[in-house]
Amino acid sequence: MENGNQTKLRIEHLSLNFGGVHALNDVSLEIKDNEILAIIGPNGAGKTCILNCISGFYKPQQGEIYFEGKKITRMRPDKVANLGLARTFQNIELYTGLSSQDNIMAARHVLMKQNFVSGSLYFGWAHKEEIEHRELVEDIIDFLEIEPIRKRVVGSLPYGMRKRVELGRALALEPKVLLLDEPMAGMNLEEKEDIARFVVDVFEGQGVTYPNNPTLRDGVTCIVLVEHDMGVVMDIADRIIVLDFGRKIAEGTPDEIKSNPEVIRAYLGQEAK
């Protein structure tokens, strides 16, 4: 699947203001295929704002976002999702009243073809389609090792499990680009390692282990990871972009970032002297 490092998402001169607050200030960046890109930065740097602009939640005042060459700035969120962008949220945003399995099934929405007539008749077409999609969802459940909580209502699940279900829901959308907003926030080391492993496994693809599920088989070749924690990011990211106060201050491989004085200053606040 070597498609070369073509650009998947291109962000040009993005500016976002809330009243007088500049959340993003002339940010330009490119997200390429075949890489895990990490966006890091201190609190309030504007990391989540970028994801929200991509998803269509925020309407930036200036700048444009292109997905595979198509302009998606200020597009409605559900249309963005239909193009193949899936994401998770910093504060878990699951459908609390549904079971884990149905949460993931709900993400198959864009890929299913039933309408309310065939759905309410059920037997026949809808039944067949439900089973087809259920099989794909079960692959994801198996991959994320959440079989025991398949039928549990997610509102009652522990935090780490809900994070996994949310990842599963994003995978079920069969995304071309996966946007992960702090997938490891609030976790202990063991849980962080689990999630990191899932992210890497998804990126690499599982091949014959899940032959029928295209996402798991081929992997999601473009992952954007917004993280607060430097450690994990350094280990799994191919490239890192650092934001501070809504501005891009550095971009490069993990090694370049580690030694970048701007980054060190932003994180350790040397300028305060």
């Binding site: 998803s55 269509g56 939640f57 409605r76 969120p77 559900d78 963005v80 999702a81 239909n82 899936a86 994401r87 949220f89 945003e93 699951l94 459908y95 609390t96 009243g97 549904l98 149905d102 709900a106 993400a107 929405h109 864009v110 829901r169 959308l173």
Partner: peptide, 15 residues
């Protein structure tokens, strides 16, 4: 149900 429980997430998931 997705809309009932979390309309933001529902929209982002393509509904």
């Amino acid at each position: 149900v997705a809309i009932r429980d979390n309309d933001l997430a529902a929209e982002v998931m393509g509904i």
